Computed example of a mutant assay.
Amino acid sequence: MCHFPFLFEGTSYSTCTTEGRTDGLPWCSTTADYDKDKKFGFCPSELLFTFGGNSNEAACVFPFVFQGTKYDSCTTEGRNDGYRWCATTANYDTDKKYGFCPNRDTAVIGGNSEGEPCQFPFTFLGNKYSACTSEGRSDGKLWCATTSNYDTDKKWGFCPDRGYSLFLVAAHEFGHALGLDHSNIKDALMFPMYKYVEDFSLHRDDIEGIQYLYGIYPMKQSIIY
Rank of each mutant, 00 (worst) to 15 (best):
R84C: 13
R84L: 13
W85E: 07
C86F: 14
C86E: 06
A87G: 15
T88K: 08
T89F: 12
T89P: 06
A90H: 10
A90L: 07
N91V: 02
Y92P: 03
Y92T: 05
D93C: 04
D93E: 02
D95T: 11
K97W: 01
K97F: 04
K97A: 09
Y98R: 03
Y98I: 05
G99W: 05
R104T: 02
D105P: 15
T106Y: 05
A107D: 14
A107W: 00
A107E: 02
I109N: 05
I109V: 14
G111R: 00
G111Y: 00
N112Y: 00
S113Q: 00
E114C: 00
P117I: 02
P117Y: 01
F120K: 03
P121K: 04
F122L: 08
L125Y: 06
L125H: 12
G126T: 09
Y129E: 05
Y129N: 06
S130I: 05
A131N: 15
A131F: 06
C132V: 13
C132Y: 15
C132R: 10
S134N: 15
G136R: 05
G136H: 04
G136M: 08
R137L: 09
R137A: 11
S138C: 01
D139F: 07
D139V: 01
G140R: 04
K141V: 05
L142N: 14
W143M: 04
A145G: 15
A145C: 13
T146N: 13
T146E: 13
T147S: 10
T147V: 03
S148C: 00
N149M: 11
Y150H: 06
D151I: 15
D151Q: 08
T152H: 06
D153L: 02
D153A: 01
K154A: 06
K155M: 06
W156P: 00
W156I: 01
G157A: 11
F158I: 11
C159R: 08
P160K: 14
P160S: 12
D161V: 06
D161Q: 11
R162G: 10
G163E: 08
G163L: 10
Y164Q: 13
L166F: 14
L166Y: 10
F167P: 03
A170S: 14
A170C: 10
A171V: 02
A171T: 12
A171N: 07
A171Y: 14
H172M: 10
H172Q: 13
H172A: 09
E173V: 12
H176A: 09
L178S: 07
L178D: 03
L180S: 12
D181E: 13
D181K: 14
D181A: 15
D181P: 02
H182S: 12
S183C: 03
N184G: 06
N184L: 08
N184V: 04
I185D: 07
I185N: 11
I185Q: 15
K186Q: 05
K186M: 07
D187R: 10
D187A: 13
A188R: 01
A188F: 04
F191R: 03
P192H: 07
M193F: 12
Y194Q: 06
Y196A: 09
V197D: 05
